[in-house]
């Protein structure tokens, strides 16, 4: 059971709702993934365009909606976006993300920490997307974040756990759930993150951009479960030389 703030979740897979070919496909992927936390974003309303009803189907699936602050380049903008999100979805849960640079979308650690501190004081349950920096993750925890969400690799890059060594330190030190966000490009990456002891993973591009997003959502769900089970079971140790699995006797010596 994954516990974040005052809520518990059976699934350790969080799904991002962006980049799907249609809202219907996104909803089918959510259903196939069995996830219980789905991220959403904010946009200025375009008055002349019809609006899809995204929310009713998601609410019917009983998933926790997690609005993000994507688009914010500073702490001030993120706090404003957070307040908009709270009103739009009537939730105080928030994925805080501040990335000023459009090329690599790296989270700004200074603005993220500043915003996190303010948002926690304003009553938000803050889940910050952040660099895989063990010191930053501790600082985010200390200001009251309900989880930390360090990146595996750049958003949408599908490069997997490029930050693996730092993630291991973050997981070892954390007293809040560590959710690996960004860069997970294959179910094997998600399984590896869970085997490290991550509490959960957040996946969007790898599922939404797959040829078959619904099947890929299911594949990620299986991988997350397998990785978590493996972590719970305790992985066997690495060895630098072979250790025989079969009895190494001289029963063929008579030949």
């Amino acid at each position: 059971m994954l516990r974040i703030a005052d809520k518990t979740f059976n699934s350790r897979l969080l799904l991002g709702s962006g980049k799907f070919a249609s809202p219907q496909l996104m909803q089918q992927a959510v259903a196939a993934s069995n996830c219980q936390l789905v991220t959403l974003a904010l946009k200025r309303l375009e008055l002349d365009k019809p609006q899809d009803d995204l929310l009713s189907p998601l609410k019917a699936m009983n998933v926790q909606l997690l609005p993000n602050t994507s688009g914010a380049k500073t702490a001030k903008e993120a706090v404003f976006a957070a307040e908009l999100a709270r009103e739009a979805l009537q939730t105080h849960w928030l994925k805080l993300e501040i990335h000023p640079d459009a090329r690599y979308l790296m989270p700004d650690p200074i603005e993220t920490l500043l915003a996190a501190e303010q948002l926690v004081k304003r009553g938000f349950v803050v889940l910050p997307y952040c660099s895989a920096d063990p010191v930053l993750c501790k600082r985010l925890e200390q200001v009251g974040c309900a989880a930390v969400m360090p990146l595996g690799a750049a958003i949408g890059s599908n490069q997997g756990l490029q930050t693996r060594a730092m993630l291991e330190i973050i997981i070892e030190q954390a007293t809040v759930p560590v959710i690996i966000d960004a860069g997970l490009g294959a179910p094997s990456h998600a399984a590896a993150a869970m085997e490290l002891g991550a509490a959960a993973v957040l996946v969007n591009t790898a599922i939404a951009s797959s040829d078959n997003p619904v099947a890929m959502a299911h594949a990620f769900a299986l991988a997350v479960e397998a990785g978590h089970s493996a972590f719970t079971a305790g992985l066997a140790h690495h060895n630098n030389q072979a250790i025989a699995s079969s009895p190494f006797t001289d029963f063929l010596a008579a030949l």
């Binding site: 309303l45 995204l54 993000n68 739009a88 969007n204």
Partner: peptide, 10 residues
């Protein structure tokens, strides 16, 4: 007056 709404996003 500015209006904002929820859209899909990761």
């Amino acid at each position: 007056v500015n209006l904002f709404h929820i859209v899909t996003g990761g």
